[in-house]
Amino acid sequence: MSYVTRNQPDGTPTWIDLRVPDLDRALAFYGALFGWEYDSKAAGGSGAAGGRDLGTVCLLHGKPVAAITQAPTTGSGSGWTMYFATADCDGAARRVTKAGGSLIEPPTDIGGLVGDLGRAAVAVDPVGARFGLWEGRAHLGCEIVNEPDSLVRNDLVTPDPGPARDFYTAVFAYTLDLNETLPDLDFTFLRRRDGHEIGGIFGFPAAPSSAWATTFEVADTDAVVHRAVAAGGTADAPEDTPYGRSATVTDPFGVEFSVIARP
């Protein structure tokens, strides 16, 4: 799927946002990297999902693919936050706390100049990884995915994968599958009830903390790495993997994410 025209099924990664201490610098960086254009009016101004509005909406081919918002410091929720689709944000939030997670921002209606955008919450799972919940109304979430310069994947990297697997299966009723392509890694696929893979949990003992890793698809990994460095970020050398050519990029605020050019 590339174009999204309706709310995604429950448990599907559906939206991402980023909070930064310097909005203008962030917009310049990600614009240089992905060719995004921006629309702050569509969401009603500054802010973030879980606050009062979406923030500055990032557009690809005129469609929303992410949001970036001003935050007092990088530490106030730094990093890309991924939001799971839900038809009932309040019910999902209750399942989060029942399963051992906690709410950073309770369910809140999100508005903008176009009206009732949706309802959102931000939570932390039992291993310390932050994520969001998004009940789409006027705003579906990412309307382009799985194509160059848009979101393609989210995986949880954690030193403690057991409690994470228990938590997400309890909240979203995922089924679990081992990754037979990379048998030496502790990697578990997460699948919706219909069998669709939504991401995975990577058990990595050396990880300093738990976090949902965001991956963007690109047409040319090497070119994106070059643009990232030229725009003030840093990047690791691209590597070929069974899934494509990938690299880890760090933006000017220290936020890490991955890019991949799939075969």
Rank of each mutant, 00 (worst) to 15 (best):
V4C: 06
V4Q: 14
R6Y: 00
T12L: 07
W15A: 14
I16M: 11
L18S: 11
L27T: 09
A28S: 13
A28F: 01
A28K: 04
G31T: 04
A32E: 13
A32I: 01
Y38D: 06
A42F: 06
G44K: 05
S46V: 04
S46F: 08
S46Q: 15
G50S: 00
R52L: 10
L54E: 06
T56W: 06
V65G: 06
A66P: 05
A67S: 13
A67W: 07
I68Q: 15
T69I: 01
Q70W: 14
P72C: 00
T73N: 02
T74F: 12
G75D: 14
G77L: 15
W80H: 05
A85P: 06
A85R: 05
T86M: 07
G91W: 03
G91N: 01
A92H: 01
R94P: 01
V96I: 13
V96Y: 04
T97A: 05
L103C: 01
G111N: 06
G118R: 01
A120Y: 00
A120V: 00
A121G: 00
A121V: 01
A123K: 02
P126C: 13
G128E: 00
F131V: 02
E135S: 02
G136R: 10
A138C: 03
H139N: 10
E143F: 10
E147K: 01
E147H: 01
L151K: 15
V152Y: 05
R153T: 04
R153N: 15
T158A: 08
D160E: 08
D160P: 09
P161G: 08
P161T: 07
P163M: 09
F167V: 12
F167L: 02
Y168Q: 06
A170G: 01
V171A: 08
A173H: 13
T175E: 14
L178S: 03
N179M: 04
D186I: 01
D186F: 05
D194A: 10
H196R: 10
I198S: 08
G199H: 13
G199Q: 14
G200Y: 14
G200F: 11
G200R: 04
P208S: 13
A211S: 12
A213R: 13
T214L: 12
E217P: 04
A219V: 09
T221E: 02
A223H: 03
V224H: 07
V224I: 13
R227K: 13
R227Y: 00
G232Q: 05
G233A: 03
P242N: 03
P242Y: 00
S246R: 12
T250Q: 09
E256K: 13
E256A: 08
F257I: 09
F257C: 11
V259H: 10
